[in-house]
Each structure stands twice: as structure tokens, then as C-alpha cells.
Design a protein around this nucleic acid. Sequence first.
DNA 1: ATTATTCTAAGAATCATTCTAAAAAGTGTC
DNA 2: GACACTTTTTAGAATGATTCTTAGAATAAT
Lengths: 151, 151
Amino acid sequence: MASETTEPTSAKASEDFGGLRMTKQRQVVYEVLADLSHDHPTASEVFVTAKERMPSISLATVYNCLETLTGSGAIRQVNIDREATRYCANLQPHAHFYCTDCDKVFDIGLERGADASSIWSLPPGCRVEEMHVAIRGVCGTCPKCRQDHAA
Amino acid sequence: MASETTEPTSAKASEDFGGLRMTKQRQVVYEVLADLSHDHPTASEVFVTAKERMPSISLATVYNCLETLTGSGAIRQVNIDREATRYCANLQPHAHFYCTDCDKVFDIGLERGADASSIWSLPPGCRVEEMHVAIRGVCGTCPKCRQDHAA
DNA sequence: ATTATTCTAAGAATCATTCTAAAAAGTGTC
DNA sequence: GACACTTTTTAGAATGATTCTTAGAATAAT
């Protein structure tokens, strides 16, 4: 697949994402997501913004790209209940807080030194691959909350 | 079931579930779920078993009942990614472990004394209503998983 | 007993997502 | 640069879990 002799050919941004081919569409989708990451956009929302930057792109392609990027570990899926899957370019371990009032999703970091899996009494022999923490609640004053997490 | 001493009107099992009317269908759905709770059945799976006990029941009614019971806090929803919602009669705080190998869902209890929400640095002023923890991995306990480990 | 309210049943509708088939783009080879 | 080959994109159809709708049944209130 990826022949790495010397690379005077086309610059391969693909190497950043586990050897997958970095097409223009994937680039656009990734950039849109990185830009909108705080909003945790759905596939449709990514599509809207991606289309502004590349009018020819299709929804199916956005789905394909999001799946490929997720598979390569470049982005993460966020599922809150059974609502449309949202996507997130934040790769740090974090939880998601869904405000039932303003309908927004916020990233919640770990307390320093905390280990999210150690509090669960997992049976011996089982191997954890992924952990998704979704917290529902009310964020209080929504504008304030948004400010607090804008960083 | 409900052994009230003096009750002029009809006995209300409803009082057990936050004042909602305990119809026969809701009763059946709840009992099915309590019986199958370890399996974390989907609505369709609940429907199959409920239909054995009450052949006239419809899928839409099972959905309605599950929603009502969830709303009253008698049962809980379990969502793993965007797969069909599963239901669970275990009301203790617990996480769900989804084995990607054997496709089963297990309840995972908290380590004693642990507090699931204290490890997250939640912004001040926000109120947590619910917390869903989904862990993906390989359970290593089922025959299939043990076989895969050996291989 | 009569009326009002809530619940159930069956099927249609919805909507996010996946699939399909064909065209397009990229890759490697001469 | 033209050729065969693989991967990706596109557009629309298909899928499947869930929700909606409407009429009729059951239950509660008057």
C-alpha cells in the first residue's frame, strides 16, 4: 500500500491518519469537524458546512468520511440516547454533558489524576476497548456554560 | 401482588410506579423485563416474550409501555452506540459492558465507595440528572470469548 | 348509566443511516 | 502519457428502529 522509499511524490497528509488516503473530501470533512468540534455536529450539520466549502460533496460521502475517520481514530463518535450521532475531534479522554434545556453537548474533562475505569468493578479477564460517558442534565445558565467551556 | 388492607375502589398497583395506571399490558411488559433483565432485551425482544404471555399485545403497545415505565423511573434505557435501545430493570447505579465478541450486555457495579460523577470536573451550576456509562470491550468470560483468547 | 379520559392496536410515516451501482479519481506500470 | 486496477464519490433506493395517527376499547369520574 503505502510505499515509503523517499517521498518526493505528492505530499501525503494521509500519514497523519493511519495510512488512509487523504482525499479532498476527507480533508474537508475533517477540517469542518475540527472547526465545529465544540458544537459536536451531526452528520447532516457537517454536511451543511462541508457543502459551503465544497459544493459538490454529497451526504453519503460525508457519512463515508466520518466513518473512515472514526475507524482510523482521527475523530470520535458521540451518542446521546438514540439521537443522531454527533462527531467530535477532541481525542482526550472526556465525558459528554448533554443539556436537556439548551440541547447542547459539552465536553467534560477528568478531574486531575482520576481514572474513569477504575471506579467500576470490572470482572477479571475482560478487556476494555472504549468507554463512553454521557451525562444528562441542565447546564444552568446556558450562555455562561458555553463560555466556561469555550476553551 | 399488592395486598392492600382496605381499598374501596379497585386495587391500584399504579402507586408502585409514580401514580401511573398499571394496565395489564404495562404489568406484562414490566414483568417480562424483570424476568429478562440480565439479557437487556430490546423492544422487539420484549415484544416476543410479552406476546407469549398476552397474545393480543402489539409492538406499538410494548413501545408505549416501555416509554411510560421509563418515564416513571421503573425501568431504565440502555443505549449502546446507535443500536436498538435495550431496557433494564436494575435501578442501582451501574455501567453497561458491551462485549463486541459475544454481543451481550453486562451490568457493571461501582467499586465500593466510588462516586461515578465525582471524577468528572463538571462546571459549577450544572445539575446532573442522569449518567450513562457504556464500556465496549471483550468480556473474556463467555465460551466464545474464551475460545477466541485461546486461538 | 353516561360521559370523559386514557390506553391499545394496526398500520402508515419518519428519519438517520446503510446499501447499491455506476461514474470519477487516484495509483502504479510501461 | 495511455493503460489496467483499485479506491472513492455520488445519487438515489432500501433499511430498520421508532414514532405518529386514528379509531376503537378500557377505565375512571360524574
